[in-house]
Every structure is written in structure tokens, then in C-alpha cells.
């Protein structure tokens, strides 16, 4: 099921934001960066988390499902494309429905934009910009076998839990060997954040 895709390993990420700048260089959305780079452990450590579109497979692309204008196309290779410019009405349904917090919206242009796996590059067999330049391999593009050739014994997971729901994705994350059978927590339900009850 897992073909050539991005593998994310936040443990290797140094938070340098090369991906953020590189995303801007991609010809399909030049000047606009789609990738997110967050420092989730603010105040405690310099840990960082890059977020590209996870290209959800099951359910297939919640963003596309909630789109009232049928603007988000999922191509046969499983890539969830960014909104069709002629159709998108800028309602932000996808922005808020995405469990991973991926799509962005240009309010003036009434247009959603999101990571399209650098379709202009991947369609020709090139790696996406972010994974090409990532200095650490926190973003890796290739097959699982290619990843294992570089990192012997690495394990990945492509299922995330959000409360009672499981979302399987086209993009995978690296997990420790003893946690392969687990589902990766998506962050929901949340009871406590940094020691503060947010319920």
C-alpha cells in the first residue's frame, strides 16, 4: 500500500525551516509556502514538528469530503491536490476539518492552498522540495525499502487516532520498533495541555 511517499521523523528534525523556504521554491506554488513547522514543546525544548499534507487514504481526504464545491481532487496515485482555483469558494471547511491542521487559505484570493506533494516534481519522479532539501532526513521521500536502506531497521506507522476514529494516511511517520503496533496519537482527546486542563 505504501509506495513512494514522505516519511516524517520529528525526532530527527532540527527545526531549521529549510523545508519552509524550499516549499516556496516549488514551481507549482512559487512564492507560497505550504508546509507547517511548529515548535510544540515551546519553553521546554527546541523540539519541532514539520507538517506536510498526510494525504489521507481512509477516510479518503476529509478535506475533499467536506468541500462544498468539489474543489479538492484526489488523483489516482493517492495525492490529495490543492483546491482547483476555478472551483474553490474559500469557505475554509477543509481548513477546519483537517485533523492534521494542514490546509491554508488565502482570504483575499478566496482560495485554499495546501501541500500537493510538489506534484510538478513527484509526477516526474523527483522528490518534493521539502524532502529534497531537508538537512536531517526528518522529511524523507521514497519507498519504505529506500528508507530502510538508509536507516536499518526503521519502523513506520500510517494510522493515527483521533478520539475513537482512526485515520490512515498516505504519508507515514517513523515510530520506535516497540510501538509499531500502536496507532500514533493524533492529539485528540485532549484533557490537559502543558499542565492546564483545557476541558
Amino acid at each position: 500500500m505504501m509506495g513512494r511517499t514522505i516519511f516524517i521523523d520529528p525526532g530527527r528534525c532540527i527545526g531549521c525551516q529549510a523545508c519552509v523556504s524550499a516549499c516556496r521554491e516549488c514551481d507549482s506554488h512559487r512564492g507560497k509556502s505550504m508546509i507547517h513547522l511548529d515548535y510544540p514543546d515551546e519553553g521546554h525544548s527546541v523540539a519541532s514538528l514539520p507538517t506536510v499534507c498526510m494525504h489521507c487514504e481512509d477516510p479518503v481526504a476529509p478535506c475533499a469530503e467536506v468541500c462544498p464545491a468539489d474543489a479538492i481532487l484526489v488523483t489516482a496515485d493517492g495525492v490529495v491536490q490543492q483546491a482547483d482555483t476555478t472551483r474553490c469558494i474559500g469557505c475554509a471547511n477543509c481548513v477546519n476539518a483537517c485533523p492534521f491542521g494542514v490546509p491554508k487559505i488565502d482570504l483575499q484570493a478566496k482560495l485554499q492552498m495546501k501541500c500537493n506533494l510538489c506534484y510538478d516534481r513527484t509526477a516526474y519522479g523527483l522528490a518534493p522540495m521539502c524532502a529534497t532539501v531537508c538537512p536531517t532526513g526528518a522529511l524523507f521521500y521514497g519507498t519504505l525499502d529506500e528508507l530502510r536502506a538508509e536507516r536499518p531497521g526503521v519502523q513506520v506507522a500510517d494510522s493515527f487516532t483521533f478520539g475513537a476514529t482512526t485515520v490512515s494516511t498516505g504519508v507515514a511517520m517513523v515510530v520506535p520498533a516497540d510501538k509499531v503496533q500502536w496507532l500514533v496519537p493524533g492529539g485528540l482527546p485532549v484533557v490537559e495541555v502543558n499542565g492546564v486542563d483545557v476541558r
Binding site: 516556496r24 512564492g31 507560497k32 507547517h36 474559500g90 475554509a92 481548513v95 477546519n96 491542521g101 490546509p103 491554508k104 487559505i105 488565502d106 482570504l107 484570493a109 492552498m113
Partner: peptide, 12 residues
């Protein structure tokens, strides 16, 4: 229209 922080900005 509004949008949550971090989703609405495409300043080149």
C-alpha cells in the same frame, strides 16, 4: 471571513 492563525497567510 476570518481564518485561524497560521492558515491565512501567504505573504510572499
Amino acid at each position: 471571513s476570518v481564518a485561524p492563525p497560521g492558515t491565512r497567510n501567504f505573504r510572499d
